[in-house]
Structures are given as C-alpha cells and as structure tokens.
Nucleic acid binder design. Structure first.
Lengths: 166, 166
DNA sequence: GTTGACCTGTGTCTAGGACACAGGTGTAGG
DNA sequence: CCTACACCTGTGTCCTAGACACAGGTCAAC
C-alpha cells in the first residue's frame, strides 16, 4: 500500500499520511526499487487509531505519547484518561472565551447598524471599532441584565438544534 | 518610547510590539545612535487600535486591510462591517464544532468511568479510544434524544453564568 | 521509444505571536 | 578609567496540524 491507497481508504489526504509518517507515527518500509514508502496492515491500524484519537480532541502530541506507551507494551489507558480530562478542561475554557467573543462580535455588528461610515481623522482610524471598544471599557460588568444572558441562552439553544441537524 | 515602555503602557509583551513592527503595522524611527526603534504618539494610537480590533475578533490580516485603507484616507468602515460579518459567521461555525466536540469528549470521559484499563493487544492500541470511536460509528445520528440536547442546554447556561461572573 | 497522466518525497508556508540568544547599553562600584 | 552586571534590543527560529508547490520518478498506452 502506498500513500495514495492508504489515504483513500481512510478518506484523508495523502498529505496527512505523509505528515504522520514524517513525525514517526507510521513506519512504512522503503521499497528499494523506487524509493516509495510501502504501508502495511499495522500502519493502517495505527492510522485508524490516530484519526480516532484526533477526532476525540487529542493533540498530535497526545497521540504520540499514547502510541509510545502502547509500543512499549504498557497500558496507555491512564495517560488517555488524564490527557482527555486536561483537553476537556481546555476545551471548556476556549468554549467560554469563544462564547464571550461571539457575543461581543454580535453586539458590535448590531450597534454599528445605526452608525454611519466615516473617514479616518487625525485621532481615529476606524470610528466603528474605536467607539465600540471605548464603550466596552466604560460599560461596567456586573450590570449584566438578564436580558443579555437570556439572549445568549436562546441563541445557544438554536445552535444546538442546528448542530443536531447536521 | 522604546518597545519596553510601549508594551508596558498597553499591558502587552514586547514581543507583540515587535511582531506588529515586523509586519509593518507600526513605523518607529530608528535611533541612529544605538539602532533602537523609537515609537511616537501615532504608533501608540495605532497599537491601541490594533489591540481593539484584535479583541473584537478581527484577524491580523483584517487589521492590515483596515489600516491600509485608513492610511490612504479612505473610510475603512465598509471593510470593517463586511469583515466582521464574515468573522462572525466563521466564529459561529467553529462554535458549533467546538460544542459538538466538547459533547463527544464529555461522553467519552463518562463512558470510560465504567471501563477498566487494559494493555495494548495485537488488534487494539488503546481500547478506550477505539471502543468509543467504534461505538460512535454505530450510533446512528437522528436518534438524538432530547435528553442530550437538554444536557447541552443546561451546561451552556451554566457556562454563561460562569462567563458573566468573570 | 515516447508521450502524458499520475504519483512521490522534500521543502516551504500558514497565524499570532513566544522564545532563545548574541550582543549592546547604562549605571554602580572600585 | 575600567569593570561587573542587570537590563534591553533586534533577529532568527519555533509552535499546530497539516496544505501546497514543485522537481523528478513511474507506469501504462501508444
């Protein structure tokens, strides 16, 4: 099996196969006739595993750690659990940040609907951006009316529906 | 003003200032005595603007586009609106993907609680990962019981609260 | 033998800075 | 005047997870 066949079987690009080969996750033998890399059944299994792990949110480094332990005959399960817990925490952190950013972006776009365009002057570059950011600074957090939170909630529900549909 | 003072004033690292200088967003004059870069009031304003825009979700490239238009005396407002709309769409797309991934990660971690560790065998590398992924393949989407959606909803509400608090 | 389609490995590129590092600056002390 | 040393500077490289470009090799058809 060469890169093309292996990548087709798993519906990924040849570049992904080359990448995992380059970093040592796959160990094809080198065909001495033409220098091409020949992948075997074990590589197929490993690649399937790599894709599963990546799909679960593990980083490439995580996968490498798990693979190394497994290659040494040790059970990688403990590492798997620990790493997943860490990745989940990170994911929730980023999730929160994204939620906040998204709300800010929506607020900006909405507030800009009632503001006209204006050319850059000596003390502003883009009035839209500068005005919104200043307003943000002055708006004290803590006044968070439930209105905004309800809006976030509703939107997130709507997103969940969209997500489920796809 | 040199990098250190400028970065302290805006509570960022000197590396960030150097980065924006390197890509041409800031134009300090070069002190001929020691070769150090000297930043002026305009650089301070530009950097404030850059940070505001970045905080609103614009990419560095976006900021460059806006800055270029403003430098030419044109109003960047149209570009600002258009780019923001695009970034918001992308953000919502990533948001959905993150939500789905997070749910998957939580489901995996939960399901692993009832499964023991096991060493790698000839046909498995890490049983936890492989079993969960196979199970995923077999679980038809469409059966999405409202239970899962309610769970997502509740968690997201909880997150909104946490986000608001910070 | 040759054309041409496809395939291969290697090197480089992405975003947004973070980090390493060799060398310069400036000041306190001798 | 000289040195020691802390701090500062610019430049080059590194990070993710692959994507892309490209020169050259392979292989079947003619």
């Amino acid at each position: 099996m060469r890169v093309a066949e292996l990548s087709e079987r798993l519906a990924i690009t040849p570049d992904t196969v080359r990448f995992y080969t380059r970093i040592g996750f796959l160990r094809p033998r080198k065909n001495p006739d033409n220098g091409y890399k020949e992948y075997g059944a074990e590589d197929l299994q490993r690649l399937k595993f790599i894709l599963s792990a990546r799909g679960l949110g593990f980083s490439v480094d995580d996968v490498g750690q798990i693979l190394r332990e497994a290659d040494q005959g040790k059970s990688p399960c403990h590492a798997t659990r620990t790493l997943m817990a860490t990745r989940l925490r990170e994911s929730e952190q980023r999730f929160r940040e994204m939620l906040a950013l998204r709300n800010k972006m929506q607020a900006a776009l909405t507030s800009w609907e009632t503001v006209p365009d204006c050319p850059p002057s000596g003390h502003t570059i883009c009035h839209l951006i500068e005005a919104f950011s200043e307003q943000e600074w002055s708006a004290e957090p803590g006044l968070d009316s439930s209105t905004e939170m309800d809006a976030m909630k509703d939107e997130t529900e709507a997103m969940n529906k969209v997500t489920s549909k796809r």
